[in-house]
Design a protein around this nucleic acid. Structure first.
Length: 111
DNA sequence: GCTCTGACTATTC
DNA sequence: CGAATAGCCAGAG
């Protein structure tokens, strides 16, 4: 695992988990944070915002299955490209992630 | 080394 | 059901 600019364990952990998420699957910020033993859901998003370079940040969504703020359009393009299960919803973005199908964790054996 | 900010979450009004 | 508040952690200034 390459060491990123921040060099902090937290950043490294976030990067490791996000990079582990398979194509077409997503994790919530809370789940990602919980995976490495920290509840900093906000911090996870911050790491992706500053150090999200080269990372599939769109595979990390909020608790309700909503994409990151301001990046809903870009995120949707990736979801459509990867075939991520999306569901029409009365949200400002007009859609949300189907956590029931796309929901994933490092423990999940499904490809 | 302290303070503010933020790609969040859960609870309450 | 939508808006507001509080709690949370880490990075940047």
């Amino acid at each position: 695992m390459a060491v990123f600019a921040a060099g902090g364990d937290y950043t490294e952990a976030v990067v490791a988990v996000v990079a582990t998420i398979p194509r077409g699957r997503v994790m919530t910020y809370g789940d990602v944070a919980w995976t490495f033993g920290r509840a900093g859901a906000r911090a996870v998003g911050m790491v992706l915002r500053y150090h999200g370079e080269g990372l599939p940040w769109w595979r990390v969504v909020r608790a309700g299955g909503h994409p990151p703020r301001g990046l809903s359009i870009e995120a949707r393009a990736h979801y459509d490209e990867e075939g991520t299960p999306l569901v029409p919803a009365p949200t400002p973005e007009g859609y949300r992630i189907d956590l029931g199908l796309a929901g994933w964790t490092p423990e999940d054996e499904r490809s």
